[in-house]
């Protein structure tokens, strides 16, 4: 009897805390969505409301009347993130394949190097990177943000783990007997087997590339090249200082695509986080 009471108390405590935390996670975004439909005047009278208002279009007009261009930011971000993700996923698979499918002299040395540099963030080498890009005239060029994605040590590491655990090596031998070339074997046989790992790693490299602010903001100085996070940072500037309705709407436009993708893929994302090593 006493035990059951304790159990009920425990559950009440757990659910109370969890529901509180859930509200804490969701509320900022709910306020953002509702306030994006309210006029700046309404927001200044009463900053929180549960009822949407009818000023969505006029907020949009204020927002787009200045330098903020969500469509351009969205397209630029899509181009960069999709290309960078494709590079990361394809070449990391290829590198992991080289590490697992073949025995070569420098293999272990190479893998140790990958493990060593896995955690070095790009920010600390940004000055050298910027100077190099400036010298070869690649500032304001998306390739400067896409090509480095070919060398993604973390992704190689996880692809290798996946391959070691679940790649049937006999397939390679039978492909060789059938006369398939090594590169063709990789593309036609190895890649399809690695699809689950590619999907997980793809989601995370896409999100990382989409959310990046530091490197794009030093490389891209031309308005027409701005990515979504750079567009967002404009909302903090003086031009929108008192236009709260427009600021909330601008935030909504930048957050919405990610929220939609997240709720569609949340199952895979949570499973991917559980694998660890997503922290960048």
């Amino acid at each position: 009897m006493k035990k059951r009471q304790g159990s009920i108390l425990f559950k009440v405590l757990v659910y109370t805390v969890c529901i509180f935390l859930a509200i804490l996670s969701l509320m900022p975004f709910v306020i953002m969505i509702i306030n994006s439909t309210r006029s700046t005047y309404e927001i200044q009278q009463q900053a929180i409301s549960l009822v949407p208002s009818g000023y969505f279009m006029s907020n949009l007009e204020v927002l787009l009347g200045k330098t903020f261009d969500p469509v351009k930011g969205f397209l630029n971000s899509i181009i960069i993130s999709v290309s960078a993700t494709a590079c990361t996923v394809y070449f990391s698979s290829l590198t992991a394949y080289a590490l697992v499918a073949y025995t070569w002299k420098l293999r272990d040395t190479f893998f140790t190097v990958i493990m060593c540099v896995m955690m070095i963030p790009t920010q600390v080498i940004s000055i050298g990177f910027y100077q190099l890009m400036y010298k070869v005239g690649m500032t304001n060029n998306f390739l400067a943000l896409i090509l480095p994605a070919i060398a993604a040590p973390t992704t190689v590491f996880f692809m290798r783990q996946f391959m070691l655990a679940s790649f049937p090596m006999e397939l390679l031998d039978s492909a060789r007997i059938d006369g398939s070339g090594e590169f063709h074997t990789f593309n036609a046989i190895a890649l399809p087997i690695m699809k689950p790992a590619m999907a997980t790693q793809g989601i995370f490299s896409f999100v990382a590339s989409w959310n990046d602010l530091f490197l794009p903001s030093i490389l891209l100085t031309d308005n027409s090249k701005y990515t979504m996070p750079i567009m967002v940072s404009l909302l903090r500037g003086d031009i929108y200082k008192t236009e709260y309705g427009a600021i909330y709407l601008g935030l909504l436009l930048t957050v919405l695509p990610i929220l939609i993708v997240y709720f569609m893929l949340s199952k895979y994302i949570i499973a991917g986080v559980a694998l660890g090593g997503v922290k960048g």
Binding site: N35, L235, I258
Partner: peptide
């Protein structure tokens, strides 16, 4: 899903959202 959500949102957007809040 809900606890993890803030992690995936662009940090730049989060910073400005909190600035407005």
């Amino acid at each position: 899903v809900v606890f993890y959500m803030p992690n995936i949102i662009t940090a730049a957007s989060v910073a400005i959202l909190f600035n407005a809040l």
